[in-house]
Design a protein around this nucleic acid. Structure first.
Lengths: 322, 322
DNA sequence: AAAGCTCGTGCACATATGTGCAGGGCTAGC
DNA sequence: GCTAGCCCTGCACATATGTGCACGAGCTTT
């Protein structure tokens, strides 16, 4: 039998589906399932792993309506943002924190993205971590668009933007649109020129039609600098310029002040990220944040009304409310 | 702390929620969770059991769009009914079959019912089995309405209709409306009279506004007679009458012929089930079927266009397509 | 205040599940 | 037609999870 003919009646995926039914819906033990499928228990264990890993089994946590978390409620009321709190112990390291938020975020994202949709994504350490944990979900006619350039990435050990993009594309079976420009041009004039190119226009066009935007937050002045800043994108004088202009953070390499404004921040003239007006035109804008060091930048992003859904670790969420 | 104050931040449900997050979203081991929650591993195991049993964790199986089951597809095309196939081994006993379909059906039902909805339910062995496996799901302003009377039930060991109803009500936190009339009146005149009573009218009114109807199928002439027939509701002459009128099955004690028609079936004059016109006005009509003996009756119900969603065991579904 | 209850806990053991490893079948290349 | 390589299987063991039981805290009853 040709695997192209495979349906849920047979073949690996079919078996996995059937095993999942028996295990999760009918509460059979793996032993019993092995018997029904005429295979060994170990194979069933593997089949079920496969089913979970490939998104055949979808597990959601739903808090009762009459008992939503206090934090979620407070964040919604005070900041107008739907929060998704990720429980992480107080004493967790920042790395741990990021990893765990990314794990949860990857699962939640599956609920936001579907066929016929277009997803815009930034890149950075948060997005990188997230991309490693995506749960596959087959979609049709869907697209992943890169939000901001990253042409001259050179740090080793850090994910290339294209790698992040590819992972999203693979997980969702979506068409991937890269944005082949540097994160920052040296000469604003070059940017202007590039923006008139047909290939660039096409990307910008796609960004305008996004259904979901997904991004982390950059904190140029936090103790632990973000990806962008460590990556060698910015020169000392750029930092001075940012500092002078009062920038507190960035979303997709577009910088903003504590009050959410961006006008007059010089570096943005040379950056390639989407204007906030464009972002705000996207129906769902998901921001993933882990760690207290992002807090000041996060506040700015909230004021800028960039965020509709916030996936955040518990401690940071608590701090946000103070 | 008063348990009325409980939110997801603390208390049993809160802990369960948090444990579920850590276990299902972050893939921690129970040991690790026990440590984070400052409790023992066993408690975490119990917490997670609780979370699953009380519907805090919602597990769904989703077959990829590009590979729907052949059977589902064929049933939809040939009979215009969304099928939900429950895998059950060929050689399973009818009891097993019913139990397993009921288990799956109970979980699927949770996807169909929500706050502000009204659910009409029949009673019988299928519904009884189903009611034992319902997954709790808190809803607001929702109602459960009994579709047909069952006043004179007397067999022991079989669930009383009111018990079934109560279980649905408990599971969904819904208001329960019983229908306190016998399954069949002896005198059609009494039925007419009762139908003019305000209390009856209220029930009928609620039936008209149902969002979902849920029922099994009765097979009066199968080798293994259904609940209704074994329950002592019908006298030998009733069977003769049904046979004479060509009845092949019933839904909520309303009988129909192989072609789906009901007109002129004498017994229906004395029965208390909802007219098929009323049923067909309900947006979603879920039928649960297990076992080959129901097949002829099922075909009739399909012809009568009573069913929008069919939850059925695999073997019977296969047979339906022949 | 003592006795009796219920409930939740952790321990120790029973089960159930996950996984490294050594075949065996299949394919592709020679 | 042979052989190297890959993937899948089941076994045996390692790990993780489920559960009966006895105990103790908090609460009710007498």
């Amino acid at each position: 039998m040709n695997e192209l003919d495979e349906t849920s009646e047979s073949g690996k995926t079919g078996d996995a589906l059937r095993a999942a039914h028996l295990y999760y819906m009918q509460d059979l033990t793996m032993d019993a399932i092995a018997h029904e499928l005429h295979t060994s228990r170990s194979s069933v264990s593997r089949l079920l792993s496969h089913a979970r890993a490939s998104g055949l089994v979808d597990i959601q946590i739903r808090s009762p309506r009459d008992m939503p978390g206090r934090i979620e409620e407070a964040v919604l009321e005070r900041h107008g943002v739907r929060a998704h709190i990720v429980p992480v112990p107080e004493n967790a390291s920042d790395v741990d924190r990021l990893e765990r938020v990314a794990l949860s975020a990857a699962r939640i994202l599956g609920q936001f993205f579907d066929s016929n949709m277009s997803l815009g994504i930034a890149w950075g350490s948060t997005m990188g971590a997230l991309s490693r944990h995506l749960i596959p979900k087959q979609t049709h006619n869907s697209q992943i668009v890169q939000l901001n350039g990253a042409g001259n990435m050179r740090t080793t050990g850090i994910l290339y933007a294209s790698e992040i993009l590819r992972r999203f594309g693979d997980a969702y079976g979506a068409h991937v649109q890269q944005f082949p420009v540097p994160a920052f041009f040296d000469d604003p004039g070059t940017k202007q020129a590039m923006w008139r190119e047909r290939s660039t226009e096409r990307v910008l066009q796609m960004q305008e039609n996004m259904d979901v935007a997904l991004f982390g937050i950059g904190s140029p002045f936090a103790e632990v600098p973000s990806h962008v800043y460590a990556g060698g994108y910015l020169e000392p004088e750029d930092f001075q310029s940012l500092s002078r202009d009062g920038a507190v953070g960035d979303v997709a390499t577009v910088f903003y002040r504590a009050d959410g404004s961006t006008d007059g921040i010089a570096l943005n003239e040379r950056g390639t990220g989407p204007s906030f007006d464009l972002l705000r035109a996207t129906p769902r804008r998901v921001c993933v944040v882990a760690g207290l060091s992002k807090l000041p930048s996060l506040r700015g992003a909230i004021r800028a009304e960039l965020i509709t859904d916030l996936i955040i670790d518990e401690s940071t969420a608590r701090a946000l409310l103070e």
